[in-house]
Amino acid sequence: VTIVQGPTISAGSQLIANTSYDGVANPCLLASGSIIAPGKIDTIKWVVNVKLNGNNGPFTKSLTVSGRTPAGVTITDVANDGINPDAAGSTPTVINFGTLPEALIGISKEALPPVKVSDRTYDLTFKFKVKNYGRTDFTGVQVQDNLAVTFGDSVRIDSVSLSADAGFVVDSNYTGRGTLINLLVDTLSTLPKNTTRNITVFTRVTITEAISSFENQALVIGKYPTNQTIDDLSTDGSDPDPDNNGNPRDNSISTPIVIDGFVADTVTVLGIAKAAQLDSIPNADDTYNLTYKFVIKNYSTRTLTRIQLRDSLAAVFADSSNFIIAAPPALSAGSTLKLNPDFNGRTNVTMLIADSSSLAPGAADTLELKLRVLTDKKQTAIFANSAYGSAR
């Protein structure tokens, strides 16, 4: 790496460029005596020449700025990717000299701590970050988030409101339920290359059943000029590409939503057991057969209705592992439960249709789920998983 042009400062700035900067022995871009006024934004620019020697990256880099207040207090900040110094976080800047794909989009979703309003009512805030990682501008962007699938029968969605950065136009019809799951008006929402835009969703919910832990993912869809689309499932946190490899599509961890402080006012009388049986010999395609067996029992003296069972398989087989449902889930003979045909363990984690599922006093039902699992892990791996049930 050689310096082609040393640090230069924007016109009218009180910053002083360090003419001895070389990025190695002398890594400071500014000289002593540099001043920045309150509310002032200054720009520093420098140019380097890089000889790759066959390594096209990606390369990641963060800068640290420090200053001293009139009171003598030293303050620091770590740079965040982009051109907005107010943005939260400290995501490194990624430089990739390889061939970027024509279209590549990423999304992250962060759940802020719930705010308790009353005994069972909470305010939830979700923050989405959408970034264009490709070489072309997106002429239409859509983000979908189905809150009803996430919360199922355990939570009532009382109200929803949206806001977004300039360049995105929120859909005022969004409710998070049914078909009204689009956060944006896609024909009015754009995302130029190497641009990041944010969306905030505020919702007030009321817990109706004794479940306070959930998982959720959103889907972003980008449309580019050749009338094609590309999508990405959200990953937890505030960075669509937390491993900084330039590819957000290999990051898709569900966002946990935990409502702390909620205590059910009744003792549960619904019991759930889950067993796993794994074939020790892989199939010809290197997948393994895995069978889950769930037993749901009513320990009360009355009929339980609106039975629901949730299992987020995507949260278990993440990163270097994947799965497919090898056969439709099956119930025991004479079951009074009804299967959800849309269950996929990823975007739809509810296994039953609650309105049509019940259990008589003392009755038990069995549900069997067969998967085929593929993993890139070279050593023995443990996958821990729990299912969550509810009833009324």
Rank of each mutant, 00 (worst) to 15 (best):
S159C: 01
G178K: 01
Q308I: 07
P92E: 10
G33P: 02
I281Q: 13
S213G: 11
V47F: 07
A276I: 13
T305Q: 13
Y133Q: 08
K377A: 10
A164F: 02
T121M: 03
S172D: 06
P256K: 14
N96R: 04
I259E: 05
C28E: 09
I83S: 13
T336I: 03
K274P: 03
T229Y: 00
T91L: 09
S118C: 02
A71Y: 08
A166D: 10
P113H: 10
A275S: 14
N146Y: 11
D123A: 09
A318R: 15
G89M: 04
R346I: 10
T91G: 01
D250V: 14
T229A: 01
G33Y: 02
T291F: 08
I221V: 14
F128C: 03
S90E: 11
Q277G: 11
S358L: 14
L219E: 11
V258S: 10
A276V: 15
S390E: 11
T187Q: 12
Q14H: 15
L369Y: 03
S163D: 02
G12I: 10
Q228L: 08
R197I: 00
N173F: 04
P329W: 01
K293A: 05
V155S: 03
L188I: 00
L15N: 03
L359P: 05
A148G: 12
T74F: 08
D165R: 05
V349A: 09
P329E: 02
V115D: 00
T99D: 11
L191Y: 02
K377P: 00
L369D: 02
P113N: 13
S118I: 03
I259R: 10
G54Y: 07
I35C: 01
G67F: 01
L304I: 07
R346M: 02
L63E: 05
E215S: 13
I107W: 09
T336Y: 05
N245H: 09
A275M: 07
A166K: 09
R156T: 14
K45T: 15
T229I: 11
N198P: 01
S332C: 01
L233T: 08
F168E: 02
D77G: 06
L309R: 08
D342N: 13
Q5H: 08
R204K: 14
Q144P: 00
D239K: 14
L290A: 07
V155Q: 06
I211C: 10
L309M: 09
T229N: 09
A391K: 09
D165P: 01
T305S: 14
L369I: 12
G39A: 10
N146G: 05
N198D: 00
N132F: 03
R392P: 00
E110I: 01
N56A: 14
L30K: 06
N182M: 04
P114L: 08
A17S: 15
T179Y: 04
S212Q: 12
I324W: 03
V73K: 12
I95S: 12
A11W: 07
A218Q: 03
S300K: 11
E215T: 15
R306L: 10
G389C: 08
A88V: 09
N216P: 06
F168L: 11
T255D: 06
Y288P: 01
V4H: 04
S312Q: 05
V155P: 04
L270Q: 08
D239L: 10
